[in-house]
């Protein structure tokens, strides 16, 4: 048997984010579903124990956010608030502070967007905001790229989870930079890594897990599917399959064919 790395042995157990053990390795977004009922069914079918939420301006007359919050609380899942839409450190920090009060959690999915077209993170602002929030007691889940140096700076800033993108948010392109994601896994063996954004298909989520990633965070691929609840179930199964495949240690790729059926004793051969 090939030697097993210590990481495989350790994380064969429950996943751990900031001391919180989770059974499901799917983190599911709550935006863009056809209806609240379909959102609720998708969360249930996915098996996700963590859903992402956000904050937006509320109207005193409409109070649209109150019904949504009631729905999420009824689902009994843990929430990971985000700072989506923030383009500056100040916006992100203030939004995080507001989210901590509203949602009652110190977890924050930190987004500092740097480009309107790609929604690529502003990694410089991200590192700065992560440091400010970690010093203020937040447990930061930074939406970042696969850049190793940025990852190191985020860890130095206090992040104990890293969330590199697979592809631009909402693009459904899957894992754009397999080499970079693989390098990140190797570079941070002790940091939980989550592929966040860009996943379009369950097979892409499984591929992320086969790389040894600890979890996948996705939203649009489920919310915009023809049958979101069914797609949510598919993602849940694919992520579990990918995880098991990683733990099972895939065979090495070869350039040449190797017969799987034994040739010894083959008929018609001298």
């Amino acid at each position: 048997m090939r030697s097993k790395c210590s990481r495989r042995c350790r994380v064969g157990e429950a996943m751990d984010f900031y001391g919180v053990a989770l059974g499901s390795r799917l983190l599911l977004g709550t935006a863009g579903y056809p209806s609240p009922a379909i959102l609720a069914e998708a969360v249930r079918r996915s098996g996700a124990e963590v859903v992402t939420v956000s904050l937006r301006r509320e109207s005193g007359a409409e109070r649209a956010g109150q019904g949504f919050w009631s729905l999420i609380r009824e689902l009994g899942v843990r929430v990971l608030p985000n700072t989506a839409g923030c383009h500056t450190v100040g916006e992100a920090v203030t939004t995080a502070q507001m989210a901590r009060e509203v949602f009652g959690t110190s977890w924050i999915k930190l987004e500092v967007i740097g480009n309107h077209d790609t929604l690529q993170p502003d990694v410089f602002g991200l590192v700065e905001a992560a440091g400010l929030l970690a010093a203020d007691g937040f447990e930061v889940f930074p939406y970042t790229t696969e850049d190793l140096v940025v990852g190191e700076r985020l860890v130095e800033a206090g992040c104990r989870v890293l969330m590199p993108w697979g592809a631009p948010i909402g693009s459904g392109r899957g894992l754009n930079n397999l080499y970079g994601l693989r390098a990140m896994r190797a570079h941070f063996p002790d940091i939980p890594l989550v592929v966040d954004a860009g996943i379009g298909l369950p097979s892409q989520a499984a591929a992320a897990m086969e790389l040894g990633y600890d979890a996948v965070l996705l939203n649009t691929a489920v919310a915009r599917a023809g049958d979101p609840a069914l797609m949510a179930a598919a993602f849940g199964q694919a992520i579990e399959a990918g995880r098991q495949a990683y733990l099972a240690e895939p065979m090495p790729m070869r350039d040449m064919a190797v017969p799987s059926t034994p040739v010894l004793g083959l008929a018609f051969r001298g």
Binding site: G29, T30, A31, G32, Y33, L39, T52, V53, S54, L55, R56, R57, E58, G60, R63, A64, G65, Q66, F68, W69, I72, P81, N82, A84, T95, M98, E101, V102, F103, I169, G170, N219, T220
Partner: peptide, 24 residues
């Protein structure tokens, strides 16, 4: 919330009031 009562507003202040919303 605990400091809202002691936060006195004046003309021109920009107040943000945010509530839970769907997010990815």
């Amino acid at each position: 919330a605990r400091k809202r009562a002691s936060m006195m507003l004046r003309d021109g202040h920009a107040v943000e009031v945010l509530a839970p919303m769907q997010g990815g």
